[in-house]
Amino acid sequence: MTKWKMNLSRRMAMGLMGATMLTGSLAAPAFAQDDFPSETITFVCAFPAGSGADVLVRYLAEAVSETSGATVIVENKAGAAGNIAAEFTARADPDGYTVYVHAGSSTAMNYHLWNNPPIDPRTDLRGVAAINRQPFYILVPADSPHQTIEDLNAFLLEAGEDATYSTTATSGRVLGAAYVQALGVNPVEVQYATGPDALVDLMSGAVDFGVADPVFAMVHAEDGTMRVLATGAGERMGIAPDIPTLVESGLDVAQIGWWAAWVPAETPDDVVMKLNEMFQAALEDEETTAFLNSMGGDVWVASPEEVDAMMVESVDEAEELVEIADLPKN
């Protein structure tokens, strides 16, 4: 049994903690910051309990709590693709007890998807530590005639508008759009809410290829139903060194999702550094690495400054990507 398959009573306790988290955070008295963390730390998750993102955040909460001895709970503030959780964190007390754990790439994208973005992630949030880097993948069903990404490229160039592809999530739409634009083709995009939704149409050949999230891609590559042809990342991933990049076939496409943790912008340096140490200690754990790899990505350890720099870069990149994918602003 790995740590992930925790024993029943432990998992129950976590569940009960989740249910009572609101009362818990209210009951904790306020202490001075010199011995941070002396109170319960809350990880804010931007997706509902049980979603893929929630699984990751809860795992990290468990891992950080185990290595540091601090009490860490998860609070789900779902909605508006993470805007609600990001805004909640940005407006929380800058004492280090409210930590936003989310994909920085989506947070950057959100800044360009709203006409009035509730926060500017570059100035309203302060990076604490990075977590991982996980790209989306281009895949075909196992019985597809396309063996390599070159096969698929050739097919798409020939088929033109007769080809179709499935996408899930904003990251999938953006990667798909960038890929077909770089190739200079215009196949029909079919959107699905989740990977499993698209599974039947991928398997039956109703769509010619799919742009899939890392978890879906890894799970189905492993069970033999799908063949992963390329990664959306600019470099080959440590967990899947055999999967080529799109750059290798001469396409200028390099997109990577990255997860990190943030606190409100005004949080003092010593608290941020302490949190960074707590995250680094958790990421050094072998089981954490194995878990993050199973989510389809590589562990990424970074300083608070590197996270902030990555956010600035991502916000710039996102503006261009939103344009390429022709995503509407709300």
Binding site: G79, A80, L113, A193, L327
Partner: peptide, 20 residues
Amino acid sequence: GRDLTSGLLRFTYGVDELYE
């Protein structure tokens, strides 16, 4: 809520909680 195909929000009247 959000229209899956276009990504536009419909009838949310600025209430972000209705995104889903």
